[in-house]
Design a protein around this nucleic acid. Structure first.
Length: 291
DNA sequence: CGACACTCCTGATGGC
DNA sequence: TGCCATCAGGAGTGTC
């Protein structure tokens, strides 16, 4: 599943050949891709414009076209962008035909989307409604994460997967970061200590950078625009390692469910949160009641 | 606010 | 061997 490092890997491959090129045609074969817009509406809005910059926000690829028109592409589970493929790749849903380059959006499971924003204000409100802080940006400080975490009683894994809080972390990197920081996925976010929040910030950054260095993780479907797999799956510290010895202590890695997702954990290195009694939880709230 | 179910989708897997 | 049920999950929506 493409997460921040996979999307960024794609962006780095595509920006050099495509920036400065004009989008001649946008052929949307699967109308679900751009719902609720009709394929022709999106094509009419974007064809003939030049790609000024290809950027990324969270797991979105942002195609910045002439006169502040933006195509916002999300790969979801199985989306891939393939540059100048030989013939049509399986499950091709969209063709972006630039001067001199053809780009295919292939997506077996059809969760991927392409959306339109016209003008910087629409772009800002699109992301403001969906995405929180960029974890590889300057704003993502330990103090920032600590402040964010204090606002949520959700399990920390659910917290990390919430794109409105931190943009770009998905199931793989959440597991990897929690293992690195020695935090159990079910620990309530607002019960992290300051030291844990600091460790977790560093662990998120380190995990994402490790994924970037390996050019992404390929579990099933991820490919870069030239069809190559990533290598990060060979470096997982905890994710997908059920039953294997913990790299730190040797205890078998357990699989559990957190936030509805398969979640991998070493229950020695990431001790389970103590269940705290309902009474003590209540005691943290104000006992006063309005009369 | 949060847990949970449901939706989208299709290939892989497990049971019998 | 073949068929059916179940699972996987990013994000949006809706319910309690």
């Amino acid at each position: 599943m493409p997460e921040l490092p996979e999307v960024e890997t794609i962006r780095r491959h595509l920006a050099p050949p495509l920036e400065g090129r004009t989008l001649r045609t946008l052929e949307i074969l699967d109308p679900r891709w751009c719902r609720p817009l009709a394929p022709q509406e999106l094509a009419n809005a974007l064809e003939g414009r030049t790609l000024e910059r290809l950027s990324r926000r969270g797991k979105y690829l942002v195609w910045e076209l002439t006169d502040d028109a933006y195509l916002l592409v999300h790969l979801r589970m199985t989306g891939n962008l393939l540059l100048d493929p030989q013939g049509a790749p399986p499950y091709t849903r969209v063709w972006l035909r630039f001067d001199g380059h053809d780009l295919a959006f292939a997506d077996q499971r059809r969760f991927g989307t392409g959306e339109l924003a016209l003008g910087p204000q629409q772009l800002d409100s699109f992301f403001a409604a969906r995405l929180g802080v960029e974890p590889l940006g300057e704003d993502f400080t330990p103090a920032h994460l600590l402040a964010l975490a204090r606002t949520s009683r959700a399990p920390i894994k659910a917290f990390l997967l919430d794109q409105k809080r931190i943009a770009g972390v998905g199931n793989i990197y959440a597991d990897e970061a929690l293992f690195r920081a020695r935090i159990h996925p079910l620990r309530p976010a607002n019960r992290l200590t300051r030291a844990q929040a600091e460790a977790l910030r560093d662990a998120i950054v380190a995990s994402l950078n490790a994924g970037l260095d390996a050019k992404g993780a390929t579990i099933d479907d991820f490919r870069d625009p030239y069809g190559n797999s990533g290598a990060f799956q060979d470096e997982f510290l905890i994710h997908l390692r059920e039953g294997e010895p913990c790299l730190n202590c040797g205890r078998p890695v357990r699989k559990l469910r957190a936030a509805g997702r398969g979640t991998y954990v070493c229950e020695r290195c990431q001790p389970r949160p103590r269940r705290y009694a309902a009474a003590s939880a209540r005691a943290t709230r104000s006992p006063a009641r309005s009369a």
